[in-house]
Amino acid sequence: MCSPAKIQLTKYIVTTERCGDLHVHVQGDLNQQGKKAVFLTVHDLGCNHSSFHDFVNHPCMCEIKDRSIFIHIDAPGHEDNAPDLPDSFQFPILQTFGEDLGTVLDFLHVKYVIGLGEGAGANVLARFGIANPSRVLGLILINCTGSAASVIENFKNKFVNWKGSGSMSQSAEEYLIFHKFGHQIVNDANSDKDKVMVEFQERIRSTLNNKNLKLYVTAFLNRKDLPLKQCKTDILLITGVLSSYANVVEKLHRELEKTKATLLKIERAGDVLLQAPEKVAHSILLFCKGQGLLTSLTLPGVERQRTFSGSSGDGEGRPRRLSRGMSMEEYDKPNIRRLSITINSDNLPNKHN
């Protein structure tokens, strides 16, 4: 049975070369990383680690959470109630932010991770994966943009002006809401949209430092093209049909090798973590199984016995089955030698050997 209790967050402050002090929140026991899947998360604009922390604590993630460790990264100056970043501090570009994440893993003594990012954070994690292929077992990217900011985005940026560090202009707030929720803001059929957006507004007005938030937005709008074709790991792209970046994600998927990249489009959703957490959790589990992780967990509607078939190897090429002599933790232990592509890819060569 899945434990309903929330796992306590352990907070670290990691000093990096170019990103300054990064606030890191670990959900789970790092001493168990040899037996569990380890996820590295980076949040989108207008939020911080709490967005992924809340998602992981959703009931649909319960079993995955119990068999995993989540390392949540706050962008510089994005921890709750953060002070203004010093005027002398140069906020990192997305490429630099991604590259410096290796320092966090070194500090925590973590070897391998599954990258899980949203929006600007997905772009950051993709850059980390490209720069550190030996440390990333796979990338799950929600609303990831592959190209530099479009003319329309830059035009919108002209109207995104913060009024000091303590308040935010209406146009800036509207930009963040559209970035986060996309076309659902004009969908009158969504009865929960007002409540969701009010909660989002309250968060960016209260716990987040608006001056620091503007710096992250600026870094995102000034991003360079993302050379995701160079990524050597498997990729799951997730977007909502109502997302403002749905077409961008589809375009990115078309440019990638179909043997490495999978696209999931979720109907009637703009913010998929809030509106369709069950579908996101299901896709995460399916993706991880393709990497030889979380193999003891069953997919909804699939017989447990089928999950324990010989689809997973023991590292020496022999089938691995769950027996009385193997615990759930042993079965879930990441099998680094078996990192196949995604679904139905047992006959593909093992690219990590």
Rank of each mutant, 00 (worst) to 15 (best):
S3N: 15
T15D: 12
E17L: 06
D21T: 06
N31K: 14
N31I: 02
L45W: 02
L45Q: 10
N57M: 02
P59R: 06
C62S: 11
I69P: 01
F70A: 04
A75W: 06
G77F: 10
H78R: 04
E79I: 12
D80G: 01
N81T: 03
D84M: 12
L85Y: 00
I93C: 15
T96N: 04
D100C: 15
L105T: 09
G115Y: 01
G115S: 10
E118W: 09
G119K: 00
G121L: 02
L125P: 05
G129Q: 10
G129E: 02
G129A: 15
R135P: 01
I142C: 00
A148D: 08
K158T: 05
G166S: 13
M168I: 15
Q170N: 14
D194K: 14
K195R: 14
V198Q: 12
V198G: 00
R205T: 03
S206L: 11
L208D: 07
L215K: 15
P227E: 02
D234Y: 08
L237N: 08
L237K: 05
I238N: 02
T239K: 00
L252E: 00
L256P: 10
K260E: 11
L263H: 04
V272N: 04
A276V: 02
P277G: 04
S283G: 00
S283Y: 00
L286P: 00
C288F: 00
L294Y: 01
T295E: 09
T298A: 14
R304K: 12
R304C: 10
Q305R: 13
F308C: 06
R321K: 10
R321Y: 14
R321M: 11
P334I: 05
N347W: 10
N347C: 09
